[in-house]
Design a protein around this nucleic acid. Structure first.
Lengths: 188, 188
DNA sequence: GTATGATATTCCAAAGTGGAAGGTCGTCCG
DNA sequence: CGGACGACCTTCCACTTTGGAATATCATAC
């Protein structure tokens, strides 16, 4: 019952609940859409944090709706906890990039194999960038992003993916293979 | 005793052990220097993985040297396990960037507070970039990087940090504050 | 010799992760 | 009408990871 300070996942849920009561499933969807790009979380984590916060009074369950849907609303204690969290200097980001491990140990791989792996990863980044840019274009068409804050987080995603693609395209022949320079893939 | 497939941390240790026997501490240092930038790990993880791999025969402990130092060497089973790991298509990277959460919830913060937080984070990235570029300069001065693989992983760090800095510098006044545009910080 | 600090390793409680299982509801077809 | 199916929504749990505290060893200075 002693409300330990919320972790970043829990605090984010509190943040979303400022806009009104939501069920666990609503929050799963919202979180995926709004912060999924730079904060990984799974449904079970969402439900666990909700249960814990309901225990400690940061949120309160309203009566159940249809299909076990149980809306939660944020309490005053929850608002206070969120305010305390958002005020703090956030920690540095953590990146875990397995592909860089594979490249770092590249001398243990057949050149063609490494090139194939790199190509697959490049495609993933190209796709993500396309998704982000589509989002930005949609906002532009609608007269601007909902908030400058949303625009900033999306902007990070775009900067990051562009940098990644440039890095991919600058890799040397030892890694992408001599055949990797062919003109396909893009044009045509 | 059934050697479950090594995770990325364990596999990296096996990779380093290809260059000869090393103690746990050596590996802590090596890992921090070689993969610390894109693969977070702590000393206790290194020792735990070493103990587990010694159990399952992927590495073997040699007799102790001075000061409890216990060198491990890779076994044939270990080489096989590493070869199997490095051959796989690595997973997508995971990024957890708490600062973006704070910015995303920026409307709940006083503008000056958010600006101060952002400025602090920018400084961290500037410092990291400087470190990476110093490394690259040192390699250039010495006639090139040790391997194209090391050059590629360092190159990613440089691309990433440069992109981050450009993103910081493109943030709007709502986030960095109107006073954030002052010319200080850099020149002078 | 002993205090101090850097080196080196172990241990463990707590948190996080992901997947399996279970329950509820709409809908489609016989 | 009813029952099978699949999508939706939630809970549970075993396993892994994390990071910090505790411990031990050695070098150096005083």
């Amino acid at each position: 019952m002693t409300p330990r300070p919320p972790n970043a996942t829990a605090a984010s849920l509190l943040g979303f609940l400022h806009d009104g009561p939501m069920t666990g499933w609503d929050l799963v969807q919202t979180a995926e859409a709004r912060i999924g790009g730079f904060w990984s979380l799974s449904p079970s984590q969402v439900y666990r944090e909700l249960a814990a916060m309901a225990q400690t009074g940061l949120i309160a369950a309203e009566e159940r709706g249809p299909r076990e849907r149980r809306p939660y609303r944020i309490t005053e204690e929850g608002r206070a906890a969120f305010a305390g969290w958002v005020e703090r200097v956030p920690e540095a980001e953590t990146i875990r990039f397995p592909l860089l491990l594979t490249i770092g140990f590249g001398r243990h791989l057949a050149p063609g194999r490494l090139a194939a792996i790199v190509r697959r990863h490049r495609a993933v980044h190209a796709e993500r960038l396309a998704g982000y840019e589509a989002q930005r274009a949609a906002w532009d068409a609608a007269g601007g992003a909902p908030t400058p804050y949303a625009a900033a987080t999306l902007g990070f995603g775009i900067s990051y993916e562009r940098a990644a693609l440039e890095w991919f395209d600058g890799l040397p022949a030892e890694i992408v293979g001599d055949g990797g320079r062919r003109t396909g893939d893009g044009a045509s």
